[in-house]
């Protein structure tokens, strides 16, 4: 085979031939421009899984009635509307349940300090690291205690069947955006193993996502058992139960498997 002598011969440690310089200067500029345009256009293609927020700049402190349902929940009077109550899920830092701090104070009036995680009508509080929960010095408003006790009682809404994705509630509600899906699967599994409340994400006919906290049919936590189902699309039958303003889907053993 005869080598063509038309192409300039490049040797790395010698000066680059002029013909090659004329070839490379516009090529390098073009690649630089394409790198910039590529970075911008690929970034623009992303979609947010929000609106959701994890407010980490400062802590807030909420007062209310602490319940284990079985996940730690603080029921309190809505500060903007005294006729309404709201239920706030509590989780620990990292990928852990707040059960360790909350269980000893069940059914007590407490103050809880942490970082709010907010998505839609949901509020979750990630406990602050130092003494996050303690009992209030006194029960300031006994009537509130009674109202919250009533509102947080369990109300059955009947048998239902839902299709959706099993997720960990902490990431989905705002700690991560996006906090669901295949890429997030391993994280959801670690969270569920740590006792973070399991949640079924159901896409409603209106295009909105609805979340149902999952428990065993006896009301106990099902997070660890569902860990290996994280991020999977499943069809679940169970009993829909309302406690405070949280909806729970109580599922049988066969549903868990």
């Amino acid at each position: 085979m005869k080598n063509s002598d038309k192409a300039p011969f490049f040797v790395g440690y010698l000066d680059m031939p002029k013909q090659l310089k004329r070839f490379y200067i516009p090529l390098v500029i073009l690649v630089g421009v394409l790198s910039a345009l590529g970075g911008m256009s690929i970034a623009k293609q992303q979609q947010s899984d929000g609106p959701a927020e994890w407010q980490t700049s400062s802590t807030v402190t909420y007062h209310g009635l602490l319940k284990m349902e079985p996940y730690p929940v603080l029921h309190r009077i809505n500060p903007d509307n005294a006729n309404e109550t709201e239920s706030i899920l509590l989780v620990n830092q990292g990928k852990f349940s707040a059960e360790h701090y909350a269980a000893p104070l069940e059914d007590q009036w407490v103050s809880v300090t942490g970082y709010p995680i907010i998505r839609g009508g949901w509020t979750m509080l990630e406990l602050a690291s130092d003494q996050p929960i303690h009992t209030a010095a006194k029960i300031e408003e006994p009537s509130e205690f009674s109202i919250l006790g009533q509102s947080s009682s369990s109300v059955s809404l009947g048998a239902v069947s839902f299709s959706g994705e099993i997720a960990d509630s902490k990431c989905f509600l705002g700690v991560m955006n996006p906090g669901k899906g295949t890429v997030h699967k391993a994280c959801a599994e670690v969270c569920l193993l740590g006792g973070i409340p399991a949640m079924l994400l159901v896409l409603g006919e209106d295009g909105l996502k609805y979340g149902y906290l999952l428990t065993h049919s006896d009301g106990s936590s099902v997070s660890k058992e569902l860990a290996n189902q994280a991020a999977k699309q499943v069809e679940v039958n169970g009993e829909l139960v309302k406690k405070g303003d949280l909806l729970y889907l109580q599922i049988g053993e066969s549903e868990v498997l």
């Binding site: 790198s35 910039a36 970075g39 911008m40 690929i42 970034a43 609106p51």
Partner: peptide, 21 residues
């Protein structure tokens, strides 16, 4: 160029409640 502009454009278009982690 790629990484700085990727991050900058993401921060520009996805802010506050829609911010991607």
């Amino acid at each position: 160029l790629y990484i700085v502009l990727y991050v900058s454009v993401t921060n520009m278009f996805f802010q506050q409640e829609d911010a991607i982690s």
